[in-house]
Design a protein around this nucleic acid. Structure first.
Lengths: 146, 146
DNA sequence: AACCATCGATTTGATATCTAAACTTAGTTG
DNA sequence: CAACTAAGTTTAGATATCAAATCGATGGTT
């Protein structure tokens, strides 16, 4: 089940809440490709490894319903849409980046993360929003919000 | 299907490679709780929202097979194991953190990320491995590795 | 010794989800 | 006008997941 929790079951953890939306086999691959500038059904069909048209159609609908993409029609007859990431959708860039970084380190691959500015390799790290200092991964805790 | 791609299908993208391992409904929730210090079957059963024993048992096996957790027996008869994150498993902390951060911003929740050092709220950001400077999310690209 | 509880699962039958492949609709190209 | 493309939908069958019961080993209780 994706993005369709029963309203009775409260999800108090933001990780669980996020995974209710993107915690399946396909959603984050579609978002990866949206981040790479793809926008059309046929592009995702080609670039999302092994996805079926049924799944792609379904996931794009869910993403629109969640406010992660906007569907914009560039033709009315026949209906032809392109999918654009919203700000909420762009926020998932770091999730995809963190997966990419882990995949680079621990799996077989062919791609890598770079900065468009300096051209160097980048990695995700934690940063304190108050001190603006980097925080080592081992210091980070998930706690109940006050 | 998790963590069991056919050997014929090459996964060249590290995001896809990572999602082959952790791209399902439960794995990252188990890793979240391993990061919070839980280690036993019965603990995960209580803390992973809505997981069945079947799924938990299966996912722990996969995680061990992938080298993400070590299974250590603290009793031989009956066999009683606890599950400890490997270095590879700890590497998924930033994936969980990025999901948490996104969930905090965009979903209902009750928890938050803080630094154990300064006690402040932290977020994941990109950093250049060469310049040691933060890199804005919008500057980061996935490209073919040279 | 008989009974109950706990832990870490496995088994079973029902249900939900996903897949592959064919089909649809409307416009476009040769 | 036949073939092709884009963006899906439909259908039937395979696969994954679920809830609930069960299991085996041990420890505690009466």
């Amino acid at each position: 089940m994706v993005a369709s929790e029963s309203p009775s079951r409260q999800v108090l953890c933001p990780v669980a809440a996020a995974l209710d939306v993107v915690g399946d086999r396909w959603t984050l691959l579609i978002i990866r490709d949206l981040l790479r500038g793809k926008s059309r059904f046929s592009e995702f069909r080609q670039s999302v490894e092994g996805i079926t048209t049924t799944m792609l159609s379904d996931r794009l609908k869910r993403l629109e319903a969640e406010g992660i993409v906007d569907r914009e029609f560039y033709s009315e007859h026949p209906p032809r849409a392109e999918y654009i990431l919203t700000a909420k959708g762009h926020g998932l860039g770091l999730v995809v980046g963190a997966l990419s970084s882990w995949g680079e380190e621990h799996c077989e691959h062919d791609l890598t993360l770079i900065s468009r500015d300096c051209g160097h390799h980048v990695v995700p790290v934690y940063q304190c929003t108050t001190c603006d200092e980097p925080v080592p991964r081992s210091s980070v805790r998930i706690i109940e919000a006050g």
